[in-house]
Protein backbone atom coordinates (compact mmCIF):
# COMPACT_ATOMS: atom_id res chain seq x y z
CA UNK A 1 0.00 0.00 0.00
CA UNK A 2 1.23 3.44 -0.86
CA UNK A 3 -1.65 5.85 -1.11
CA UNK A 4 0.05 9.14 -1.79
CA UNK A 5 1.54 11.01 -4.72
CA UNK A 6 4.92 9.88 -5.94
CA UNK A 7 7.61 12.11 -7.47
CA UNK A 8 6.37 11.65 -11.03
CA UNK A 9 2.82 12.46 -10.03
CA UNK A 10 3.90 15.65 -8.30
CA UNK A 11 5.90 16.58 -11.38
CA UNK A 12 2.93 15.93 -13.66
CA UNK A 13 0.72 18.09 -11.46
CA UNK A 14 3.27 20.92 -11.44
CA UNK A 15 3.70 20.77 -15.22
CA UNK A 16 -0.04 20.98 -15.77
CA UNK A 17 -0.25 23.86 -13.33
CA UNK A 18 2.50 25.83 -15.03
CA UNK A 19 0.98 25.42 -18.46
CA UNK A 20 -2.53 26.19 -17.21
CA UNK A 21 -1.35 29.40 -15.59
CA UNK A 22 0.60 30.39 -18.68
CA UNK A 23 -1.92 29.71 -21.46
CA UNK A 24 -5.16 29.96 -19.51
CA UNK A 25 -4.81 32.97 -17.24
CA UNK A 26 -8.24 33.78 -15.85
CA UNK A 27 -8.25 37.26 -17.47
CA UNK A 28 -8.22 35.50 -20.80
CA UNK A 29 -10.60 32.65 -20.07
CA UNK A 30 -13.26 34.88 -18.55
CA UNK A 31 -14.57 35.59 -22.06
CA UNK A 32 -14.41 31.99 -23.24
CA UNK A 33 -18.18 31.65 -23.66
CA UNK A 34 -18.47 34.83 -25.70
CA UNK A 35 -18.52 34.48 -29.49
CA UNK A 36 -15.03 33.66 -30.72
CA UNK A 37 -13.90 32.95 -27.18
CA UNK A 38 -12.50 29.51 -27.87
CA UNK A 39 -8.71 29.71 -28.09
CA UNK A 40 -7.56 26.83 -30.29
CA UNK A 41 -3.89 27.55 -29.76
CA UNK A 42 -4.25 27.31 -26.00
CA UNK A 43 -6.34 24.15 -26.35
CA UNK A 44 -3.63 22.57 -28.55
CA UNK A 45 -0.93 23.50 -26.08
CA UNK A 46 -2.85 21.72 -23.35
CA UNK A 47 -3.40 18.70 -25.59
CA UNK A 48 0.26 18.52 -26.58
CA UNK A 49 1.16 18.04 -22.96
CA UNK A 50 -0.84 14.81 -23.10
CA UNK A 51 -3.53 16.15 -20.76
CA UNK A 52 -6.39 14.39 -22.55
CA UNK A 53 -4.51 11.17 -23.25
CA UNK A 54 -2.91 10.48 -19.89
CA UNK A 55 -4.19 6.91 -19.65
CA UNK A 56 -4.33 6.20 -23.41
CA UNK A 57 -1.82 3.70 -24.81
CA UNK A 58 1.18 4.97 -26.75
CA UNK A 59 -0.22 3.65 -30.07
CA UNK A 60 -3.01 6.16 -29.65
CA UNK A 61 -0.62 8.98 -28.85
CA UNK A 62 -1.19 8.60 -25.11
CA UNK A 63 1.10 8.79 -22.10
CA UNK A 64 0.17 5.23 -21.02
CA UNK A 65 -0.08 6.30 -17.38
CA UNK A 66 -2.63 5.12 -14.83
CA UNK A 67 -6.06 6.76 -14.67
CA UNK A 68 -5.18 8.19 -11.28
CA UNK A 69 -2.59 10.40 -12.95
CA UNK A 70 -5.35 11.89 -15.06
CA UNK A 71 -7.34 12.37 -11.88
CA UNK A 72 -4.46 14.40 -10.42
CA UNK A 73 -4.01 16.43 -13.60
CA UNK A 74 -7.73 17.22 -13.66
CA UNK A 75 -7.69 18.43 -10.06
CA UNK A 76 -5.14 20.98 -11.20
CA UNK A 77 -7.20 21.96 -14.25
CA UNK A 78 -10.15 22.61 -11.96
CA UNK A 79 -8.06 24.62 -9.54
CA UNK A 80 -6.81 26.76 -12.42
CA UNK A 81 -10.33 27.22 -13.81
CA UNK A 82 -9.23 25.93 -17.22
CA UNK A 83 -12.18 26.10 -19.64
CA UNK A 84 -13.18 23.83 -22.52
CA UNK A 85 -14.55 20.32 -22.99
CA UNK A 86 -11.88 18.79 -20.75
CA UNK A 87 -13.74 15.67 -19.73
CA UNK A 88 -15.23 15.08 -23.18
CA UNK A 89 -11.74 15.20 -24.69
CA UNK A 90 -10.38 12.61 -22.28
CA UNK A 91 -13.30 10.28 -23.05
CA UNK A 92 -13.30 10.76 -26.81
CA UNK A 93 -9.56 10.08 -26.92
CA UNK A 94 -10.61 6.44 -26.38
CA UNK A 95 -11.76 6.43 -30.02
CA UNK A 96 -8.66 8.09 -31.42
CA UNK A 97 -6.78 6.29 -34.15
CA UNK A 98 -3.01 6.46 -34.35
CA UNK A 99 -3.27 10.14 -35.31
CA UNK A 100 -4.54 10.90 -31.81
CA UNK A 101 -6.75 13.62 -33.25
CA UNK A 102 -8.77 14.35 -30.10
CA UNK A 103 -5.96 13.68 -27.67
CA UNK A 104 -3.71 15.87 -29.78
CA UNK A 105 -6.18 18.75 -29.79
CA UNK A 106 -6.93 18.92 -33.56
CA UNK A 107 -10.46 17.61 -33.13
CA UNK A 108 -12.59 19.14 -30.41
CA UNK A 109 -15.39 16.89 -29.13
CA UNK A 110 -18.60 17.40 -27.20
CA UNK A 111 -20.24 14.61 -25.26
CA UNK A 112 -24.00 14.60 -24.74
CA UNK A 113 -25.57 12.41 -22.12
CA UNK A 114 -29.00 11.52 -23.49
CA UNK A 115 -31.52 13.12 -21.12
CA UNK A 116 -34.73 11.73 -19.73
CA UNK A 117 -37.48 12.20 -22.36
CA UNK A 118 -39.01 15.62 -21.94
CA UNK A 119 -36.13 17.22 -20.01
CA UNK A 120 -34.50 20.24 -21.68
CA UNK A 121 -31.23 19.20 -23.31
CA UNK A 122 -28.56 21.75 -22.46
CA UNK A 123 -25.17 20.90 -23.91
CA UNK A 124 -21.89 22.60 -23.08
CA UNK A 125 -19.18 23.29 -25.67
CA UNK A 126 -21.39 22.28 -28.61
CA UNK A 127 -20.55 25.61 -30.25
CA UNK A 128 -16.87 24.70 -30.54
CA UNK A 129 -17.26 20.99 -31.24
CA UNK A 130 -16.03 19.26 -34.41
CA UNK A 131 -17.72 16.03 -33.42
CA UNK A 132 -20.51 15.09 -31.03
CA UNK A 133 -20.85 11.84 -29.11
CA UNK A 134 -24.13 10.80 -27.58
CA UNK A 135 -23.92 8.58 -24.56
CA UNK A 136 -26.66 6.43 -23.07
CA UNK A 137 -26.99 3.05 -21.39
CA UNK A 138 -27.00 1.22 -24.73
CA UNK A 139 -23.84 2.64 -26.21
CA UNK A 140 -22.19 5.63 -27.85
CA UNK A 141 -23.21 7.25 -31.11
CA UNK A 142 -21.24 9.73 -33.20
CA UNK A 143 -22.84 12.71 -34.90
CA UNK A 144 -21.83 15.64 -37.02
CA UNK A 145 -22.59 18.77 -34.97
CA UNK A 146 -24.42 20.19 -38.00
CA UNK A 147 -26.94 17.35 -37.72
CA UNK A 148 -28.23 18.67 -34.38
CA UNK A 149 -30.80 21.40 -34.09
CA UNK A 150 -29.51 23.75 -31.40
CA UNK A 151 -29.68 27.37 -30.26
CA UNK A 152 -26.93 28.98 -28.24
CA UNK A 153 -27.91 30.16 -24.77
CA UNK A 154 -27.12 33.88 -24.71
CA UNK A 155 -26.45 34.04 -20.97
CA UNK A 156 -25.11 30.73 -19.68
CA UNK A 157 -24.88 30.50 -15.88
CA UNK A 158 -21.17 29.76 -16.17
CA UNK A 159 -19.74 32.66 -18.20
CA UNK A 160 -16.71 30.57 -19.14
CA UNK A 161 -18.64 27.64 -20.63
CA UNK A 162 -20.68 28.08 -23.83
CA UNK A 163 -24.02 26.34 -23.66
CA UNK A 164 -26.61 25.33 -26.27
CA UNK A 165 -30.19 24.17 -26.12
CA UNK A 166 -30.58 21.13 -28.35
CA UNK A 167 -34.10 20.66 -29.67
CA UNK A 168 -33.43 17.79 -32.05
CA UNK A 169 -30.96 15.03 -31.41
CA UNK A 170 -31.03 12.59 -34.34
CA UNK A 171 -29.53 9.11 -34.19
CA UNK A 172 -25.90 8.80 -35.21
CA UNK A 173 -23.47 6.01 -36.00
CA UNK A 174 -22.87 3.55 -33.21
CA UNK A 175 -19.18 3.76 -32.25
CA UNK A 176 -19.24 2.14 -28.84
CA UNK A 177 -21.21 -0.63 -27.15
CA UNK A 178 -22.89 -0.64 -23.75
CA UNK A 179 -19.67 -1.58 -21.98
CA UNK A 180 -17.83 1.31 -23.58
CA UNK A 181 -20.69 3.62 -22.61
CA UNK A 182 -20.49 2.42 -19.02
CA UNK A 183 -16.75 3.11 -19.08
CA UNK A 184 -17.38 6.66 -20.29
CA UNK A 185 -20.01 7.25 -17.64
CA UNK A 186 -17.64 6.17 -14.92
CA UNK A 187 -14.60 8.01 -16.21
CA UNK A 188 -16.70 11.07 -17.04
CA UNK A 189 -18.05 11.15 -13.51
CA UNK A 190 -14.62 10.61 -11.99
CA UNK A 191 -12.82 13.26 -14.03
CA UNK A 192 -15.62 15.73 -13.28
CA UNK A 193 -15.17 14.91 -9.59
CA UNK A 194 -11.46 15.56 -9.93
CA UNK A 195 -12.21 18.99 -11.39
CA UNK A 196 -14.65 19.64 -8.55
CA UNK A 197 -11.98 18.86 -5.95
CA UNK A 198 -9.63 21.26 -7.71
CA UNK A 199 -12.21 24.03 -7.37
CA UNK A 200 -12.73 23.19 -3.69
CA UNK A 201 -9.04 23.46 -2.88
CA UNK A 202 -8.46 26.60 -4.91
CA UNK A 203 -11.30 28.69 -3.47
CA UNK A 204 -10.24 27.73 0.03
CA UNK A 205 -6.77 29.13 -0.73
CA UNK A 206 -8.37 32.34 -1.98
CA UNK A 207 -10.62 32.62 1.06
CA UNK A 208 -7.79 31.89 3.49
CA UNK A 209 -5.58 34.55 1.91
CA UNK A 210 -8.44 37.02 2.13
CA UNK A 211 -9.14 36.16 5.78
CA UNK A 212 -5.51 36.80 6.64
CA UNK A 213 -5.37 40.18 4.99
CA UNK A 214 -8.81 41.78 5.33
CA UNK A 215 -9.18 43.69 8.61
CA UNK A 216 -12.34 44.60 10.52
CA UNK A 217 -12.71 45.61 14.16
CA UNK A 218 -8.98 46.27 14.13
CA UNK A 219 -7.83 42.76 13.31
CA UNK A 220 -7.75 40.31 10.42
CA UNK A 221 -11.18 38.67 9.96
CA UNK A 222 -9.41 35.29 10.09
CA UNK A 223 -8.97 35.93 13.82
CA UNK A 224 -12.69 35.47 14.34
CA UNK A 225 -13.66 31.94 15.18
CA UNK A 226 -16.80 32.10 13.09
CA UNK A 227 -14.63 32.66 10.03
CA UNK A 228 -11.92 30.24 11.14
CA UNK A 229 -14.32 27.42 11.73
CA UNK A 230 -16.07 27.70 8.41
CA UNK A 231 -12.73 27.63 6.60
CA UNK A 232 -11.52 24.71 8.74
CA UNK A 233 -14.64 22.79 7.74
CA UNK A 234 -13.86 23.44 4.09
CA UNK A 235 -10.32 22.21 4.60
CA UNK A 236 -11.46 19.00 6.27
CA UNK A 237 -14.11 18.32 3.64
CA UNK A 238 -11.60 19.04 0.87
CA UNK A 239 -9.06 16.60 2.30
CA UNK A 240 -11.65 13.87 2.64
CA UNK A 241 -13.00 14.50 -0.87
CA UNK A 242 -9.53 14.50 -2.36
CA UNK A 243 -8.76 11.14 -0.73
CA UNK A 244 -12.04 9.74 -2.09
CA UNK A 245 -11.36 10.95 -5.62
CA UNK A 246 -7.77 9.68 -5.62
CA UNK A 247 -8.95 6.35 -4.23
CA UNK A 248 -11.53 6.02 -6.99
CA UNK A 249 -8.75 6.68 -9.51
CA UNK A 250 -6.65 3.93 -8.00
CA UNK A 251 -9.57 1.48 -7.82
CA UNK A 252 -10.45 2.12 -11.48
CA UNK A 253 -6.85 1.23 -12.34
CA UNK A 254 -7.13 -2.16 -10.70
CA UNK A 255 -7.26 -5.00 -13.22
CA UNK A 256 -10.74 -5.68 -14.56
CA UNK A 257 -12.35 -2.70 -12.82
CA UNK A 258 -13.55 -1.23 -16.10
CA UNK A 259 -14.69 -4.49 -17.69
CA UNK A 260 -18.28 -3.63 -17.16
CA UNK A 261 -20.22 -6.09 -19.26
CA UNK A 262 -23.67 -5.64 -17.80
CA UNK A 263 -24.71 -2.00 -17.93
CA UNK A 264 -26.88 -0.91 -15.06
CA UNK A 265 -26.01 -3.98 -13.02
CA UNK A 266 -24.68 -1.77 -10.27
CA UNK A 267 -21.15 -2.87 -11.00
CA UNK A 268 -18.41 -3.64 -8.55
CA UNK A 269 -16.04 -1.67 -6.36
CA UNK A 270 -15.19 0.80 -9.13
CA UNK A 271 -18.82 1.88 -9.51
CA UNK A 272 -19.15 2.31 -5.76
CA UNK A 273 -15.86 4.19 -5.46
CA UNK A 274 -16.64 6.57 -8.31
CA UNK A 275 -20.11 7.27 -6.94
CA UNK A 276 -18.77 7.88 -3.43
CA UNK A 277 -16.09 10.19 -4.82
CA UNK A 278 -18.75 12.15 -6.65
CA UNK A 279 -20.88 12.61 -3.53
CA UNK A 280 -17.87 13.94 -1.60
CA UNK A 281 -16.37 16.03 -4.39
CA UNK A 282 -19.59 17.85 -5.22
CA UNK A 283 -20.30 18.52 -1.57
CA UNK A 284 -16.79 19.82 -0.90
CA UNK A 285 -16.74 22.03 -3.99
CA UNK A 286 -20.12 23.64 -3.37
CA UNK A 287 -19.46 24.10 0.34
CA UNK A 288 -16.08 25.68 -0.31
CA UNK A 289 -17.29 27.94 -3.11
CA UNK A 290 -20.22 29.18 -1.05
CA UNK A 291 -18.07 29.63 2.05
CA UNK A 292 -15.37 31.47 0.13
CA UNK A 293 -17.92 33.90 -1.29
CA UNK A 294 -19.38 34.47 2.17
CA UNK A 295 -15.92 35.04 3.65
CA UNK A 296 -15.25 37.73 1.02
CA UNK A 297 -18.30 39.75 2.01
CA UNK A 298 -19.46 42.26 -0.63
CA UNK A 299 -16.42 41.53 -2.78
CA UNK A 300 -17.58 37.95 -3.01
CA UNK A 301 -20.78 39.16 -4.64
CA UNK A 302 -18.96 40.93 -7.48
CA UNK A 303 -18.27 39.88 -11.05
CA UNK A 304 -14.66 41.05 -10.67
CA UNK A 305 -13.62 38.50 -8.10
CA UNK A 306 -13.13 35.01 -9.57
CA UNK A 307 -15.08 33.14 -6.91
CA UNK A 308 -18.39 33.17 -8.77
CA UNK A 309 -16.64 31.55 -11.74
CA UNK A 310 -15.63 28.65 -9.54
CA UNK A 311 -19.10 28.35 -8.03
CA UNK A 312 -20.78 28.41 -11.42
CA UNK A 313 -18.38 25.89 -12.91
CA UNK A 314 -18.87 23.67 -9.88
CA UNK A 315 -22.64 23.85 -10.37
CA UNK A 316 -22.17 22.77 -13.97
CA UNK A 317 -19.87 19.91 -13.01
CA UNK A 318 -22.20 18.81 -10.25
CA UNK A 319 -24.62 17.70 -12.98
CA UNK A 320 -22.03 16.34 -15.40
CA UNK A 321 -22.28 12.60 -16.15
CA UNK A 322 -24.24 12.04 -12.94
CA UNK A 323 -25.65 14.06 -10.07
CA UNK A 324 -25.02 13.94 -6.35
CA UNK A 325 -28.43 12.39 -5.83
CA UNK A 326 -27.87 9.71 -8.45
CA UNK A 327 -24.41 9.00 -7.05
CA UNK A 328 -25.79 8.71 -3.50
CA UNK A 329 -28.41 6.33 -4.86
CA UNK A 330 -25.71 4.22 -6.53
CA UNK A 331 -23.82 3.97 -3.25
CA UNK A 332 -27.01 3.01 -1.41
CA UNK A 333 -27.78 0.32 -3.99
CA UNK A 334 -24.28 -1.08 -3.60
CA UNK A 335 -24.73 -1.55 0.14
CA UNK A 336 -26.13 -5.04 -0.21
CA UNK A 337 -23.06 -6.07 -2.19
CA UNK A 338 -20.11 -4.17 -0.71
CA UNK A 339 -20.34 -4.30 3.09
Amino acid sequence: MHFDLDEDQRALRDTVRRLAEEVFPVERTRGWAEPGGFDRAAWSALAELGTFAVYQPEERGGLALPVVNAVLAYQTLGACLVPGPLVAAALAADLDGDSGAVGGGEVVPAVVVRPEPGAPLLVEHLRDADVVYVLDAHGIERLDPAALTATPITVPLDPTTPLSLVTDLPRGDQVGDAAQAARWSLLGSLLSSALLVGHALRVLDLATAHAQQREQFGRPIGTFQAVKHMLADCFARGEVARAAVDAAGVIIDEPGALDITEPGSGGGPAVRAVAAARVLAAEAALLSCRTAIQAHGGMGFTWEVDLHLHLKRALLLETSYTTSDAAAEAVAQSLQRVP
Binding site: F3, E239, V240, A241, A243, A244, D246, A247, R272, A273, A275, A276, A277, V279, L280, A327, A328, V331, A332, S334, L335
Partner: peptide, 10 residues
Protein backbone atom coordinates in the same frame (compact mmCIF):
# COMPACT_ATOMS: atom_id res chain seq x y z
CA UNK B 1 -21.71 5.25 3.28
CA UNK B 2 -19.85 7.43 0.76
CA UNK B 3 -18.41 9.56 3.58
CA UNK B 4 -17.18 6.48 5.39
CA UNK B 5 -15.60 5.18 2.17
CA UNK B 6 -13.84 8.51 1.82
CA UNK B 7 -12.64 8.42 5.42
CA UNK B 8 -11.31 4.95 4.78
CA UNK B 9 -9.36 6.37 1.85
CA UNK B 10 -8.10 9.23 4.04
Amino acid sequence: AAELDALWAL
